[in-house]
Write a protein that binds this DNA or RNA. Sequence first.
DNA 1: CTCAAGTGCAACTTTTAAGTTGCATTTTCG
DNA 2: CGAAAATGCAACTTAAAAGTTGCACTTGAG
Lengths: 104, 104
Amino acid sequence: MTSTLVPVFAALGDDTRWGILSALGEGDASASALADRMPVSRQAIAKHLAVLQEVGLVESHKVGREVRFRVVGSQLAATARHLDAVGAQWDRRLAALKRVAESL
Amino acid sequence: MTSTLVPVFAALGDDTRWGILSALGEGDASASALADRMPVSRQAIAKHLAVLQEVGLVESHKVGREVRFRVVGSQLAATARHLDAVGAQWDRRLAALKRVAESL
DNA sequence: CTCAAGTGCAACTTTTAAGTTGCATTTTCG
DNA sequence: CGAAAATGCAACTTAAAAGTTGCACTTGAG
């Protein structure tokens, strides 16, 4: 599970993809619709959507002749929980080291 | 604050940097010490440490003639909280849309 | 004091990601 | 049944990140 975590962060480390996620927050949309209100080409949007879908941050469904995308909020929440757990683990290690240091 | 969030994710979206963070979890270390147990050069490590420090994930302090780095767990926790909040917001939007759809 | 350990700076190559353009293909709406 | 809208695929160009090598500089351990 940790093995799939890094690509999720990589996907979230791009401004354009956050723009896409933000736009999708106002309702499902196709790549073409997103390209209309964003300063990059449709193909660029399509690539970003592929990246986001690859790591489970969005999912697609067909409506008529277009492919609409929606945000998978639960994946964000899961990633957040994972990150929080990692942070807590480090805090515990640091606290343990501190106790050892103080006991000397 | 949101403006500084994306670079944090970008910093976390790299396997080598996770290796560094993992190694630092076992205790503070210098760039040279990290390079000894990792398959990349010291300079590469130094660059990664600079990136991590830039976004507040590690901090440095001098010990003798070496510069040691430690993980800042609180930054991870803060990022996790932020991500969780974003995810929750999307969930609320999706739920609202669902209610609207069902009321039709 | 001295010299090796540790770090910092800079130029360079390689790799990968982002973005574009162009065209082919599908398909549903009218 | 067409024609326009939407998507998919492929080749290409930038642009940026990752990594390397080499050397100069600093400084603290012995």
